[in-house]
Amino acid sequence: MTTNMLSRRTFAGLTLAAGLALPFAGSPALAADYSKDNPLKVALVVHGNLGDKSFFDSAAAGLRKADAELPVKTTVIEAGLDRGRWQPALADAADGDYDVIIGGTWEMNAFMAELAPEYPDKKFILFDDAPDFAAADLKNMMAIQYRTSTAAYLAGYAAAKVSKTGKLGEILGVEGATVVEFAVGFEQGAKAANPDVEVTRAVAGSFTDPAKGKELALAQFSQGVDVVFPIAGGTGIGALQAARDGGKLAVGVDSDQAVIFEASDPAQAEVIFTSVEKRVGQSLYDTLKKTIDGTATYGQVVLLGLQDGAVSISKNKYYEKVVPADVRAAVDEQEKKIVAGEIKVDTVMK
Rank of each mutant, 00 (worst) to 15 (best):
M1F: 09
M5N: 11
M5Y: 11
S7D: 12
R8V: 13
A18C: 08
L22Y: 02
F24P: 00
F24S: 11
A29P: 02
A32M: 00
S35L: 13
P39S: 15
K41N: 00
V45E: 01
H47V: 02
L50W: 09
F56G: 05
L63M: 04
A66L: 11
A68I: 12
E69H: 10
E69D: 13
T74F: 07
D82G: 03
L90W: 06
L90P: 07
A93E: 03
A94I: 11
T105F: 03
F111K: 11
M112Q: 08
K122H: 02
K123P: 04
K123H: 05
F124E: 05
I125Q: 05
L126H: 00
A130M: 05
D132G: 12
F133K: 14
A134C: 09
A136N: 12
M141K: 10
I144R: 08
Q145D: 04
T148Q: 04
S149H: 00
A152D: 04
Y153T: 10
L154F: 05
A158M: 08
T165E: 12
L168G: 14
G169F: 03
E175V: 05
E175K: 01
G176N: 10
T178E: 14
V203F: 15
A211Y: 01
G213N: 03
K214G: 09
Q223H: 09
G224D: 10
P230W: 01
A232S: 08
G233N: 10
G234E: 01
A242F: 01
R244Q: 13
D245Q: 05
G247S: 10
L249K: 07
A250K: 08
A250L: 06
G252V: 07
V253D: 10
S255Q: 07
Q257L: 14
V259W: 05
F261L: 15
A263F: 00
V271R: 02
V271T: 10
E277T: 07
Y285T: 01
T287Y: 14
L288A: 01
D293P: 00
G294F: 04
G299L: 00
Q300N: 13
V301I: 13
G309H: 07
V311S: 03
S314K: 06
D332A: 14
I338N: 05
